[in-house]
Design a protein around this nucleic acid. Structure first.
Lengths: 338, 338
DNA sequence: CTGAAAGCGCTTACAG
DNA sequence: CTGAAAGCGCTTACAG
């Protein structure tokens, strides 16, 4: 029963010194054995390796990288990894980061703010920079994020003195609504997410007003930002605004839900109802009819985000001004739902 | 034109010493100012902060964590983050890891093995442990992974001396096929992925043989492990095996594709054809009809994986034997497609 | 083939 | 309120 040994190993992780002592050699020799360097006899190497295994020794990464070269890590902050928007963005980010030999740590804020704060606090200590969408109602994070270079992905003014990629919805939404009107739709509704009217909804309203299109309170319905929210919203919309012949949906996840909601309500898409989502996610191609959507080039977003981070880290990018706040717009991808 | 200064800062990152010199104080004082510690005059603090900002100084994380406490990072290796199976698993993994204050670095191997090797090589230097699905045809990675504790998620014997979670498909597939037969299906086909018959396919074959169910070469079709692959496979199957009234599909991504393929071919699901996928992904609920699937509890997989890693890192888990190789099975989730 | 020395960049006691 | 010393765990030259 070697419990004494185990107890000790719980108190302190073995270091290279412990291995050296156990093997009866110096620490440099341990380094040679472990890292496969030359200038060491096979016999010694074996002895060291055995000692290391016996002690369950693994080198301290911090010490290794301190003496070695610098390695950069960036944190990718998401609201909920189960919303497919984030994995699609993460996919590009991880791939492009790998090309620079950067690693990306994913931080899922989850739905409850409390754990999200803890997670963020821990993240900023581990990374060289942060990129991600930050919900507006959590500006408390400003403090935390002040300690690390950050690129915010957002649709609104967030912080003038912080690098950010502005997602400009006006261009895309205008294109989508132009298209709907041009194809003969007249009663255009909107399915929004969350409590406050989103920026996307405001743009929609402005468009309807500017173009003299019919609008009433019944034109808009708001629901949870989930697939089920989309299902519910479609039913509700169908009840409260039966004349609607087109709908712009907050995002693709909800739009795919709306497709299902309309199908259940006997509303044919696109014959009776044109549906346009936002984001351009892969899931839009899974469903029938396939979803028409305002697609964001997520690879480009990831690319630009990494460029910004590189600029900040190297000190060549000013933290405010137009260069640190590029703008990105959508492209209307026409498929079957509109 | 302060290019000389910039050139220098490109050569070497500024350290705490540089800041100290620029501010005319000692390094400890810099630490106090930067970390918001007491025992420093407001004036000195400001001077230090200014110097730090001017030099674009950010503390070296490696040095910080070397002196501070240990922080553990695990690497999550995936084949392709755009396959929704991985994000769902990642979501649980990230959440559960956060509870232990562990961070997870995502490594996407991509489709080309070459870049995958580079990515892995870089990963193992940055993490304390690795978890993930590793394709069988890449055993070359054994060398790389020998250097870091690894938990493999797999359906086959991979390495007896490595911790792994065995995904036992036999239980679930038997349940699915039992269910199909019990509901009156007789001509059960299989849509497989990749070149070699998968383990899942072999289990399917055995079942058909053991139960005296009709089988021929036409019962099986293999396609790419993508949504489009599923679409293609369904059409092909419909042509080469018109009598089929049920099909087990390699995974949900392909199954959702198959749903689309059958719809296009005028095959009604589930009336003419029962479809069962594998994985139990969220996307199965997006489509119509909703997909019946053999669901894997991905939260449980993540949980067990982290337990294994904890055991390995603390040295309390033997690297071979049943305790380090738990088994996981599927549950048949009945929805609409079967 | 093996070991003594110096140093990576930071922080935590300890003196003043 | 500020600074000199020691040390975190490793690796990279440099001696023998």
């Amino acid at each position: 029963m070697p419990s004494a040994e185990n107890d000790q190993s719980n108190l302190r992780r073995p270091t290279i010194i412990d291995v050296a002592q156990a093997a009866g050699v110096s620490r440099q020799t341990v380094t040679r054995a472990l890292n496969g360097l030359p200038d060491i006899s096979q016999q010694t190497r074996t002895r060291v390796l055995d000692a290391a295994k016996k002690l369950n020794y693994r080198p301290n990464r911090a010490a290794q990288s301190l003496v070695g070269g610098r390695s950069v890590a960036i944190g990718f902050v998401v609201n909920d990894l189960r919303n497919p928007y984030y994995p699609e963005l993460a996919s590009s980010l991880v791939r492009l980061a790998a090309e620079r030999d950067w690693s990306v740590i994913v931080c899922d804020l989850g739905r409850q703010p409390a754990s999200g704060n803890l997670a963020l606090e821990s993240l900023v200590r581990r990374v060289d920079a942060v990129v991600g969408h930050l919900p507006h109602d959590r500006w408390i994070w400003d403090d935390l994020l002040a300690s690390v270079p950050t690129v915010i992905l957002d649709d609104a003014q967030f912080d003038e003195n912080r690098a950010r990629i502005e997602i400009d919805y006006a261009v895309g939404i205008t294109e989508a609504l132009d298209y709907l009107v041009a194809s003969g739709r007249r009663n255009v509704a909107m399915i929004d997410a969350g409590g406050e009217p989103s920026r996307r909804r405001l743009i929609y309203r402005d468009y309807l007003r500017d173009h003299g299109l019919p609008w009433s309170n019944a034109s808009e319905v708001s629901a949870q930002d989930t697939h089920q929210g989309g299902v519910d919203a479609a039913r509700l919309l169908h009840e409260q605004y039966p004349a609607a012949d087109a709908v712009l949906v907050f995002n693709d996840v909800m739009a795919v839900g709306a497709l299902k909601g309309f199908a259940r309500a006997g509303v044919r898409v696109p014959q009776d109802m044109a549906v346009i989502g936002i984001d351009g996610l892969d899931i839009g191609q899974l469903v029938t009819p396939e979803l028409t959507s305002l697609a964001l080039d997520k690879t480009e977003v990831a690319h630009v985000a990494l460029e910004l981070i590189e600029g900040i880290l190297s000190g060549t990018l000013p933290l405010s001004g137009p260069h640190s706040q590029p703008r990105m717009t959508h492209t209307l991808v026409r498929r079957e739902s509109a």
